[in-house]
Simulated assay, not measured.
Amino acid sequence: MARPSIPAEIRRAVLVEAGHRCAIPRCGETELDVHHIVPWEACKNHEYSNLIALCPICHRRAHKGEIDRKALLQYKAALTAGSGPGMQANFEAPIVEIRRRIFERNTDVPGFTFQFDFPDFEGLVQRIVSKNVEAWGYELLADFRHHQETVMPVKEEGNPDTESFYKVPSSLRGSYQIIRNDDVVISLEYTLDRFFTGSAHGGRNTRVQNFLISPFQPITARDLLAENSSLGDLSELVRSRLLSNRQYSENWVIKGTEPKGDNFSNFVLEKNGVQFIFDEYQIDSYAAGRQKLWIGYDQFAGIGNHSLFSKLAGNDF
């Protein structure tokens, strides 16, 4: 079986933790790999606690044993404790009231406005969460700039068709809702409102950010499942719950809940259950808007990660 790629949320967290520099003290290189401290062949997973950012040279030294596993664990512990380079850098985005904002306006043609808000949490681990969300915001900005530079057609001076086309600039606005913030987990629901110049209407997407606090760990859909369970099991559970509600078309639901990671990437974590979020066109029409499905931790029927759910629910699970 081919080795799966490291989830984007976990890779980002590892790089942010190290300040996008090699985790070996006094190395400082910025060209980075993500290394498994316990080799992939032995662990067969991409746990955040087992991953560390290394430059290609230090990565090769680690594989040769010149930097041994015990040393790597010590470097990882220093990063996790906040004494590594990842926690030394200041935020780039200025603070706006109780949150921070990444803002950019481009008055060229085609022009655009980008605004992305994110929470500025207090506490050592919580600030790691804030820095991860900030890094994601800058990824969105880079993608948005790239779209403007490569997809938008060039304006033709004096052409009335293109003059009309560029009347309204592109925009992207990211706003969030804190679903849960305690000593166990931080769960954020993001709404991304996009409009591209020349479009008939805008679009709205949901994205989420979920982090376990201790030990710090980005939470993906795969983390919700027991070791012997699969996305196919999750797909069957979600489908059965959705189809019990007669408002949904079976064809829509089957297509939108195929056992693919993207279909289940949007979820938030509440005290006693998981809220799955489905954007327009996923399980219903655009006019129906976003749809949500809540499943209690005790309703995962043997396929759920009991250890994680116990931690999330506390004594109530």
Rank of each mutant, 00 (worst) to 15 (best):
I6S: 05
E9R: 12
I10N: 04
V14K: 10
E17A: 12
A18C: 13
C22Q: 06
I24F: 05
E29I: 04
L32D: 05
P39W: 09
W40P: 02
W40F: 14
C43F: 01
H46N: 15
S49T: 12
L51K: 03
I52L: 13
P56Q: 09
P56A: 08
I57A: 08
C58T: 01
G65V: 09
E66N: 10
D68H: 10
D68V: 02
R69E: 15
Q74R: 13
Q74I: 08
Y75L: 11
T80V: 14
A81M: 12
G84L: 02
P85H: 07
Q88R: 14
Q88S: 12
Q88T: 10
N90E: 14
F91A: 11
A93P: 05
P94K: 11
P94D: 06
I95E: 13
E97A: 15
I98K: 14
R99F: 12
R99E: 13
R99C: 04
R101L: 14
D108M: 07
D108V: 04
V109P: 00
P110G: 15
P110A: 13
G111Q: 08
P119S: 09
F121K: 06
E122H: 11
G123T: 07
G123D: 05
L124C: 01
V125I: 15
R127E: 11
I128C: 01
N132I: 03
V133F: 13
Y138S: 07
E139W: 03
R145S: 03
H147W: 10
E149N: 11
T150N: 12
V154K: 14
K155V: 01
K155R: 15
E156T: 12
G158W: 09
S164P: 00
Y166A: 01
K167W: 04
S170N: 08
G174W: 01
G174V: 08
Y176G: 04
I178G: 07
N181I: 00
D183Q: 14
V184E: 12
L188F: 07
T191V: 11
D193C: 00
T197L: 04
S199R: 07
A200E: 14
H201E: 14
G203D: 14
N205T: 12
T206P: 01
T206W: 01
R207I: 13
N210P: 02
P215C: 03
P215D: 06
P218I: 03
I219Q: 03
I219T: 05
T220G: 09
A221M: 07
L225H: 07
L225T: 02
A226V: 01
E227M: 05
L231F: 13
G232H: 09
L234G: 05
E236M: 07
L237T: 09
V238F: 09
R239W: 04
R239Q: 15
R241M: 01
L243S: 08
R246H: 11
W252C: 01
V253L: 02
V253K: 08
K255T: 03
G256N: 11
G256P: 11
T257Q: 03
P259N: 05
G261C: 00
D262E: 13
F267S: 10
F267L: 08
F267I: 06
N272T: 11
V274D: 01
I277F: 05
I277S: 04
S285W: 04
A288D: 10
A288P: 00
G289E: 11
R290Y: 02
Q291E: 13
K292I: 04
L293A: 06
I295S: 09
Y297N: 02
D298N: 14
Q299K: 15
S307D: 14
S307H: 08
S310E: 15
L312E: 03
A313M: 03
G314C: 07
N315V: 09
